[in-house]
């Protein structure tokens, strides 16, 4: 069996495609460098990540695939799932041999990549639904998230378009970075010392000394509304959990105590 190993980056994966064609072979497996190797390998090749080769493969893909298919590949990568690399690698190799197969869902690799991309897209929608801002004294609206996948880059344009007249910060506590919008453009931010931030990473709550004066009242109003709008004769907690999974609740105002 031929096995390639790579450094876990997108560039690494694309470089692996480059070498598979350079060596005129189709490795059975593409593994992460830290992964355990299978028992019987005839040949193990450690792919040296090379930006230029990766770029050439990407450009080649762009020539063969539709914009939509290219986007799905990028989106699938944001899943950060280890199990993506093998089918994605095979899918890309197949595109260079067979052309645009992006809509052939009977192909297991196309299907796997598409399904992973769908999961990511589903979660970015959930962020658009469930993000709750609090207003700080200085007028900045802040929220903390911890999504399963790295969806933050996918939702920025939505929030920039929607809240263009208010400064905001969306911070991913799991991946330790966020995006800040100050009225002009969006910048990526990280904190040198995360322990010093004026909000709680566990529940997303802004510290009282920086919270704007009427924010508590607004949060209470929202919780009151949330309770009042429910029709008790129609209780359906199962549907609620299905559409709004519990793992998102910890940052949601209506599910927090005042």
């Amino acid at each position: 069996m031929t096995v390639y190993t790579f450094d876990g980056t997108m560039d690494g994966l694309l470089t692996a495609v480059f070498y598979a064609f350079a060596f005129k072979e189709q490795p059975e497996k593409l593994l992460n460098e830290e992964d355990a190797l299978p028992l019987f390998c005839d040949r193990v090749y450690k792919v040296p990540t090379e930006e230029e080769k990766a770029r050439r493969v990407w450009v080649g893909l762009e020539k063969r695939l539709t914009k939509e298919a290219m986007r799905l590949i990028s989106v699938s990568w944001l899943s950060e799932l280890r199990e993506l690399s093998q089918p994605l690698f095979q899918y890309i190799c197949k595109v260079f041999r067979q052309g645009d197969i992006s809509r052939n869902y009977a192909d297991p690799d196309v299907l796997a990549v598409t399904n992973i991309a769908r999961r990511v897209l589903h979660e970015q929608l959930r962020m658009k639904q469930f993000i709750r801002f609090q207003k700080a004294k200085d007028g900045t609206y802040l929220t903390v998230i911890a999504p399963d996948h790295n969806v933050l880059p996918l939702i920025i344009s939505h929030f920039k378009d929607r809240f263009r007249d208010q400064p905001w910060l969306i911070y991913d506590a799991k991946r330790h970075y966020g995006f800040y919008y100050g009225g002009e453009s969006v910048v990526r931010v990280t904190f040198e010392n995360e322990a010093d931030v004026p909000f709680n990473l566990e529940d997303g709550k802004l510290n009282d000394d920086v919270l704007s004066a009427d924010d508590h009242l607004l949060q209470d109003l929202w919780r009151t509304y949330f309770k009042a709008i429910c029709i008790r004769e129609r209780m359906n907690p199962r549907k609620q959990l299905n559409d709004m999974p519990r793992r998102y609740w910890k940052y949601m105002t209506e599910k927090q105590n005042g």
């Binding site: 639904q129 263009r164 129609r234 549907k239």
Partner: peptide
């Protein structure tokens, strides 16, 4: 889409549900 000097936009498709009440119904609008 958003407009200069205004707040807000509307998205396509089915709109956005921001929460789900205990009766399982979507809360999208106030």
């Amino acid at each position: 889409s958003g407009r200069q000097g205004m707040v807000g936009n509307t998205v396509g498709g089915v709109g956005i549900c921001h929460s789900f009440a205990d009766d399982g119904r979507c809360i999208s609008l106030l």
